[in-house]
């Protein structure tokens, strides 16, 4: 048993090890993100694919049904009035009463309902604190209220900007999505979607809690430092393939092989290898060797 003489190093190692594991566990890495239930309930109107096992995985040779990903949500005019009330209460102080922007916040006219939906449904808007980059929070508004606000902003410049896409991933192609993700997204969001720091205090957020609708809205609107991908860069079908890959593979990775150590690669692995591996073996040395 652990006797007094090496109880202290043992306790130290155990503490450091446990904190190391906690620090690199996925839950800690996403502590500031919204809870999955909130985001999931806030975004409806599309079919969730289940993880990889049942998602239709067609090979590139078999032609996927074309034309998916082109439909958009049409917001009824009856949403505009309640949307205006919500906008006046929560947004107008910075964006101005008619969403034309002030010295404190940009003009929203012409950005489209999809852009508004992205910022509000991820909880980034209303801002909690003015910083370099807005952070994900539990959304302030429910799904209906979000759509009402989007309808109001849309009504200021009808027919312009990005509409809210109708997302149906059932026909999407995971393999195409995977290679498009690696080519277009991994350079900032990392190949595991864990996100990472960028220059100048900005960061690429984790993708692990984003809904497919939000992913497509982000691709099309380019929030913050993210580039905006037009339909010339990525067709509607390709955007849906990426969303399907993020949802089916990035968010539900095949995580065999034990604890995932946060998906941040060799930094976490090195800590575990040195503290747990070498540390444990050194304790064994200490145990079976002479200590004076």
């Amino acid at each position: 048993m652990i006797r007094g003489r090496y109880a202290i190093p043992a306790a130290l190692l155990a503490t450091v090890g446990i904190f190391g594991l906690m620090a690199f566990s996925p839950s800690a890495a996403q502590a500031d993100s919204t809870t999955p239930t909130t985001v999931a309930s806030a975004a409806g109107g599309y079919a969730y694919p289940t993880p990889t096992s049942t998602t239709p995985t067609t090979s590139p040779t078999s032609s996927a049904p074309s034309g998916y990903g082109t439909a958009d949500i049409t917001l009824p005019d009856s949403f505009i009035a309640p949307g205006q009330a919500l906008f006046d209460a929560s947004c107008a102080s910075c964006h101005g009463a008619d969403a034309a922007g002030t010295s404190r916040a940009p003009n929203l006219q012409g950005l489209g309902a999809g852009t508004v939906d992205f910022w509000v449904s991820t909880g980034r808007m209303p801002l909690a604190i003015s910083s370099i980059q807005a952070t994900v929070k539990p959304p302030r508004f429910d799904r209906l209220q979000t759509l009402q606000i989007a309808a109001f902003v849309q009504s200021k410049a009808p027919g312009t900007g990005m509409p809210i896409p109708i997302v149906n991933l059932s026909a999407a192609n995971l393999e195409v999505g995977g290679s498009l993700f690696t080519l277009n997204c991994a350079a900032c969001h990392t190949i595991t979607g864990a996100g990472d720091a960028l220059a100048g205090g900005a960061f690429a957020p984790s993708l692990h809690l984003a809904t497919p609708t939000q992913i497509i809205e982000a691709i099309r609107s380019g929030p913050g430092d993210m580039p905006r991908f037009s339909e010339g860069n990525l067709t509607p079908t390709e955007a849906h393939d990426i969303a399907a890959y993020v949802h089916g593979v990035i968010q539900h990775p095949e995580d065999r092989g034990g604890f995932g150590l946060g998906g941040i690669g060799p930094v976490g692995e090195g800590f575990v290898g040195l503290l747990v591996g070498v540390g444990l073996l050194m304790l064994v040395c200490f145990w079976i060797g002479e200590r004076t």
Partner: peptide
């Protein structure tokens, strides 16, 4: 018990 270098996730 501890995953290391999950290459299938990297592509």
């Amino acid at each position: 018990f501890a995953q290391i270098n999950p290459i299938w996730q990297f592509g």
